[in-house]
Amino acid sequence: MIIQKPGIAGTLESSDAQVTVEPGDGKIEFELESAVINQYGLQIRKITYDTLKRLGIDNVKIKIVDKGALDCTLKARIEGAVYRSCNQYNDLPWGGAIQ
């Protein structure tokens, strides 16, 4: 997939995360804000890269503001932002690229 325009998903409520994606400069640029960055920063980074890989994205600026989100929420917000940036809302690949 190709990030076509900025996309944002999620909120700043507790247990959630707000994810913003923008077209990149030829690579993945990852930025993270989290109160638990020391304990979970690496794990959040891994989930982000794994999710982007499944979606076939290697060119994106991605910013995550984490408010204590579970792994499943992080994935949901990353995918939400990506599919919004691509204007795709139907016939999504549940169980394929989304898993």
Binding site: A9, G10, T73, A76, E79
Partner: peptide
């Protein structure tokens, strides 16, 4: 509506 579906899907699969 779109964001809720992603949230739902992963909750069903992982929680």
């Amino acid at each position: 509506k779109d964001a809720a579906r992603f949230s739902l899907y992963h909750a069903l699969k992982e929680i």
